[in-house]
Amino acid sequence: VKVFRALYTFEPRTPDELYFEEGDIIYITDMSDTNWWKGTSKGRTGLIPSNYVAEQ
């Protein structure tokens, strides 16, 4: 598990995607895809765009 911080707010387009706000901490559990990672924030899990976060 790696810890990342959201650089921007992300509004999901599908139920599989995770909503998060700029500054949120996201725990990444799967980075197997280059563009979409699986992450958890505020008790919810979903896909996030990798270019919206920076490693802490």
Rank of each mutant, 00 (worst) to 15 (best):
D33Q: 08
L18H: 01
E11A: 11
E11K: 13
I25T: 10
N35G: 12
Y52P: 02
L18M: 11
W37A: 00
A6F: 02
I25R: 04
D33T: 07
Y8E: 06
P49A: 05
N51F: 10
T14L: 10
S50M: 07
K2D: 03
W36V: 05
F4M: 11
G39V: 03
P15Q: 11
G43W: 04
G39T: 02
F10A: 11
P15C: 09
Y8W: 11
T45S: 14
D30H: 06
I26V: 08
S32E: 09
N35L: 15
W36S: 02
P49H: 06
T34K: 15
V3L: 12
A54G: 08
R13I: 08
A6D: 00
D33W: 04
T45W: 15
G23D: 05
K38E: 08
G39Q: 01
T45N: 09
K38L: 15
K42F: 08
Q56C: 15
L47Y: 12
G46K: 01
F20L: 07
Y19T: 06
S41P: 01
E21D: 07
S41D: 02
P15Y: 08
N35H: 15
A6P: 01
W37Y: 13
W37I: 02
P15H: 10
E22R: 13
G39D: 01
T34W: 08
S32N: 11
V53I: 10
K42D: 10
E11P: 03
K42R: 14
V3I: 14
T40E: 12
L7H: 02
V1C: 15
E22W: 06
S32P: 07
D33H: 08
E21C: 08
T14S: 14
K42T: 06
T34V: 14
A6W: 03
F20A: 04
G23N: 07
K42A: 12
I28D: 00
A54Y: 12
K38W: 15
R44P: 02
F10I: 04
I48E: 01
D33V: 06
M31E: 04
Y27A: 06
W36D: 01
A6G: 05
V3M: 12
Y52M: 12
E17M: 12
I26S: 00
K38D: 02
F10N: 08
S41I: 14
Y19S: 12
K2L: 12
A6Q: 01
V53D: 02
I28T: 00
K38T: 14
S50F: 06
G39P: 00
T29K: 06
R13Y: 08
A54E: 14
I48Q: 00
W36H: 03
T45E: 12
T34C: 13
P15G: 10
G23R: 03
E11G: 05
E22M: 13
P12C: 06
E21V: 10
T29R: 06
Q56D: 14
D30N: 07
R5S: 05
I48G: 01
P49F: 05
D24S: 05
P49D: 04
N51C: 15
I25K: 04
V1Y: 14
E55I: 13
R5H: 08
F4R: 02
E55C: 10
T29V: 11
Y19I: 03
T9C: 08
T9R: 11
K2W: 14
E21F: 07
N35A: 13
F10Q: 05
V53Q: 01
W37V: 02
F4W: 09
P12Q: 04
Y19W: 10
M31K: 07
D30S: 06
F10L: 05
P15E: 13
Y19K: 10
F4D: 00
L18Y: 01
V3F: 10
K42L: 07
Y27G: 03
E22L: 10
P49S: 04
K2M: 11
E21G: 05
R13F: 07
T40C: 15
D16F: 13
G23T: 02
W37Q: 00
I48D: 01
A54Q: 13
R44S: 07
Q56E: 14
G39R: 01
F10R: 12
F20T: 02
